[in-house]
């Protein structure tokens, strides 16, 4: 079965991103399923802020998702409108808003909600984490 994940819970005040990563790892290690992509919306977009620095002895959930995405070649989409509202910008948005720097971590990608619709069309199941 092909899955997509839709995550809306904050990476700091909820465990949505953590639970979703556990689920994604189980999917990939199980072998019977595939993951089309992950879409971060609402406060979950904070996950893509490369300036977020948790203490060294704590889980860096943003980096863990990035490592997962790189290892399994899974796209991590971040809603562009929700991200910009929360101060997370890539290079082109930083230029557009005349900001000194960008802060979108790699390999996260800013995308519109149309990408979520595409994911839902191509997936058998969308699983939400809030």
């Amino acid at each position: 079965m092909k899955f997509s994940l839709f995550i809306t819970g904050s990476p700091t005040s909820t465990k949505a991103c953590h639970s979703a990563l556990d689920f994604a790892l189980a999917l990939m290690r199980g072998g019977d399923h595939s993951l089309a992509g992950v879409f971060f919306y609402e406060d979950a977009t904070y996950i893509a802020n490369q300036f977020a620095m948790p203490p060294r002895d704590e889980c860096h959930i943003g980096q863990e998702w990035a490592d997962f995405a790189t290892q399994y070649e899974i796209p991590l989409y971040v809603c562009i409108a929700a991200a910009i509202r929360r101060g997370i910008v890539n290079d082109s948005e930083a230029k557009r808003y005349e900001l000194d720097t960008s802060n979108l971590a790699k390999p996260y990608q800013l995308e519109g909600l149309g990408t979520l619709i595409s994911l839902s069309s191509e997936s058998d199941r969308i699983v939400r984490f809030r």
């Binding site: 409108a81 909600l113 149309g114 979520l116 619709i117």
Partner: peptide
Amino acid sequence: EGLDLALVLGT
């Protein structure tokens, strides 16, 4: 943000 998603789906 829920309404935003509804409008994009409609679009």
